[in-house]
Design a protein around this nucleic acid. Structure first.
Length: 458
RNA sequence: GCCAAGGUAGCUUAGAGGCGAAGCGGUGGACUGCAGAUCCAUUACACGGGAGUUCAAAUCUCUCCCUUGGCUCCA
């Protein structure tokens, strides 16, 4: 299996540090607002990565942090007139809820920054003791020039990063030095050896990952936007604090989600929350949409694209439905074509997993799946498929479904769950059709359509 | 300016030296009282321009053009 490593900018053979144990850390959200579809993209991608690692037999521990205190949270909480931690808690719950709806279910542990204050303080203390960090009247800062590798992940050089900065804090040694601890008197603030204040942005992740993983782990992931400065700072902190290099064996970053070709932002008015998305689309449709593009590529969100995904997904569902029907029918348990189809099933599996092995290439995996669907449909039309083969096909789709986090089984149609009154109308219409009274039958269909109920004859 | 990712059929996306991909759409057909849905078949000069390397290039090299993102917080 190969994974693209942002550090080396190429695909590398995946070998965990410790036999088949895999430690994966992915940067979680700052819970100052509802989550948006960009979060959805990133966490769906890592969910599939997690699923596939498990499927391959790795013993995975997937850790994610939750940033529950920072300037944005405080600002927003002040605007709303509530406690910052309360705001964080509320948004965190919404986040969990969104993730569950999107079938993002493989994080083993969520670590909140505020529940790791001791670890954060300890790590800062270590950095000061070892001479990487220094205290000033405004806070504790990391001295970038003490870490010679600074910039290695984002491919920048430290001199350039330290020339022009707008209004750098004059107490800092270098303009680019970043805060580990911000001294603040006003609430919310916590006690520390350097007085009251709160942690800087980058330190929580390394304090948390060191706590649960030690100084080194296999995979660190996040959105593309986190490479600089966030991940760069993490490397500097962790490798300086522990002296272990490299901190992370494989750095993985997901591409951006754009809306209508533009970056999603509140000022552009194209900001879409997951909550809003799910009012219009089935979560599975969004998931399929995300998986139809490679995780590192940018993906452009639009209604057209989502509708296209909806149709594609339906093609899969339809086949599953047809298979269920055939399993209930009186057809042969096996037949002379079985070998041919068993082989087809095997080859499809191979192709699918080969694509997944190649840096989690879900679009190619899906194209193997659709080729398979075409061949199976053809087989069904020719009456070539036996019950045994149908069962095998079902098993294969279950496997695919597990890895992708998609449910391929049939959904109850809207008619099934419709009101009894609608069912009565449908029954009457059936009788009219048998009597060939199409005029009245069509009127019923037409009027049901007017109120949003579509009837489709078998 | 610096760093990064791109330009592939009408659209959305894979692929990365040789065997012309997937989905959506278009067209034709099957099915249907009709419509729809579904299925099958088919379609498309596909690889931004130019030069080079090679027996062979969408894939490698050079060059030019264009797009997007980052360089302050951001998944």
């Amino acid at each position: 299996m190969k994974i693209y490593n942002t550090m080396t900018r190429k695909k590398e053979e995946f070998k965990p540090l410790n036999e088949n144990r895999v430690k994966m850390f992915v940067c979680g959200p700052t819970v100052y607002d509802k989550s948006h579809i960009g979060h959805g993209r990133t966490y769906i991608s890592f969910d599939v990565i997690a699923r596939y690692l498990k499927y391959k037999g790795y013993s995975l521990f997937y850790l994610q942090n939750i940033t529950d205190i920072d300037d944005k949270i405080i600002k927003r909480a002040n605007e709303l007139g509530i406690e910052p931690l309360k705001l964080a808690k509320e948004n965190e719950e919404l986040y969990f809820n969104d993730m569950e709806l999107l079938s993002v279910t493989n994080v083993n542990f969520y670590a909140r920054a505020m529940e790791h204050l001791n670890e954060i303080i300890n790590q800062i203390q270590t950095l000061i003791t070892k001479g990487f960090a220094y205290e000033t009247p405004t806070g504790v800062y990391f001295d970038e020039f003490c870490f010679e590798d600074f910039g290695k992940l984002s491919n920048r050089n430290i001199e350039e990063l330290n020339v022009s900065r707008v209004n750098p804090d004059p107490t800092k040694r270098n303009p680019g030095d970043f805060a580990l601890w911000k001294k603040r008197e006003e609430e919310p603030a916590w006690d520390s050896p350097w007085g009251k204040g709160r942690p800087g942005w980058h330190i929580e992740d390394t304090a948390i990952s060191e706590t649960y993983f030690g100084g080194q782990f296999d995979i660190h992931g996040g959105g593309l936007d986190l490479i600089f400065p966030h991940h760069e700072a993490e490397i500097a902190q962790m490798e300086s604090a522990t002296d272990k290099k490299p901190m992370v064996k494989y750095w993985m970053h997901t591409g951006f989600l754009n809306v209508g070709g533009e970056k999603m932002s509140k000022s552009l008015g194209n900001f879409i929350t997951i909550e809003k998305l799910l009012k219009e689309y089935d979560p599975q449709v969004f998931r399929f949409f995300v998986l139809s593009t490679h995780y590192r590529s940018p993906i452009d969100f639009s209604d057209e694209a989502l509708q296209q995904s909806e149709k594609s997904l339906k093609r899969i569902h339809k086949l599953m439905e047809t298979i269920e029907e055939h399993l209930e029918m009186d057809i042969k348990q096996q037949n002379e074509n079985d070998n041919k189809y068993i082989k087809l099933i095997e080859n499809t599996g191979k192709e699918f997993f080969k694509a997944m092995d190649n840096d989690f290439n879900t679009p190619t995996a899906l194209s193997a799946l659709f080729n398979f669907i075409r061949d199976v449909n053809k087989g069904i039309n020719h009456g070539e498929i036996s019950k045994n083969v149908f069962k095998e096909i079902k098993l294969l789709f279950n496997e695919f479904g597990y890895v992708l986090g998609l449910t391929f089984s049939i959904k109850s149609s809207k008619i099934d769950s419709a009101d009894e009154i609608v069912n009565i109308l449908v029954d009457i219409r059936e009788k009219l059709r048998k009597k060939k009274d199409y005029e009245l039958a069509d009127e019923i269909r037409g009027r049901l359509k007017d109120i949003g109920i579509n009837l489709e004859d078998k």
